[in-house]
């Protein structure tokens, strides 16, 4: 990911969720987006994740202008360029960890053997190599989030988007997950994390604060 600029004016008649936001996030950056609820961070997240398109303005992911893409092309972008980590994990409850991680590769069209191999590798990377055949409801919250992270990683996306990844976890498990995300960043992934917790945001190298759809501040964090 080289450059990302975006301007956004609300499309809704009344609510302006985001008002003319200009951002640029570089490749390999570790950015936290913060703000109270209603600040527009979820909307921004959705647009960054190509789940939603801006009403006005432009969003470039790499060199692709997202607005000019069809729904199918957006699906491909989500599949190949973006890895999602959700607050509520969003795993398929009835299938095994391995199958969950395989899912994006399925839509990528890889043959089953290749899918299994890569999914297994991704699970190894998040430390769940011995839980491949377990179903999500047999695993703890932290383990579920690790599966979700493995699923996000498995396509080797340009961008990992984490939306309150620790929101449903206790602080100890949350720390483990944050350490895992830190590790991914260290390995060269671009990470954007959305949170309202200051201590979570502090893991990032840069914090963007939103308020009422505006960028309130955009500051690098100097780690001690």
């Amino acid at each position: 990911m080289k450059a990302l600029t975006k301007t956004y004016k609300s499309g809704r008649i009344d609510v302006q969720a985001l008002a003319e936001i200009n951002l640029q996030i570089q490749k390999n950056e570790y950015v936290a987006i913060m703000g109270p609820s209603g600040s527009g961070k979820s909307t921004l997240m959705n647009i960054l994740g190509c789940l939603d398109t801006p009403s006005t303005g432009q969003y470039f992911l790499g060199e692709k202008n997202i607005q000019s893409l069809s729904d199918n092309q957006l699906s491909e972008i989500r599949n190949q360029e973006i890895g999602f980590v959700f607050q509520s994990f969003n795993l398929l409850p009835r299938v095994s960890a391995l199958k969950n991680v395989e899912l994006p590769l399925t839509y990528l069209g890889l043959p089953p053997a290749e899918r299994r191999k890569r999914a297994a590798e991704a699970l190894d990377r998040v430390g769940l190599g011995d839980r491949k055949q377990h179903k999500p409801n047999e695993l703890s919250g932290g383990q579920r989030q690790r599966i979700a992270i493995a699923r996000a990683l498995v396509t080797q996306p340009a961008l990992i988007l984490a939306d309150e990844p620790t929101g449903n976890l206790d602080s100890k498990t949350g720390e483990d997950i944050m350490a895992l995300i830190q590790k991914l960043h260290d390995q060269g992934n671009t990470v954007i994390i959305v949170t309202h917790e200051q201590y979570i945001a502090e893991h990032a190298a840069r914090v963007i604060r939103l308020r009422d759809g505006h960028v309130e501040s955009d500051l690098p964090i100097h780690k001690t």
Binding site: L51, D71, S75, E76, N90, L92, P104, T155
Partner: peptide
């Protein structure tokens, strides 16, 4: 519905 959402988010196309 949620399963549909998950599948779509990780790259399933409408026709899939």
């Amino acid at each position: 519905t949620r399963e549909i959402g998950i599948r779509r988010a990780i790259g399933a196309k409408k026709h899939q």
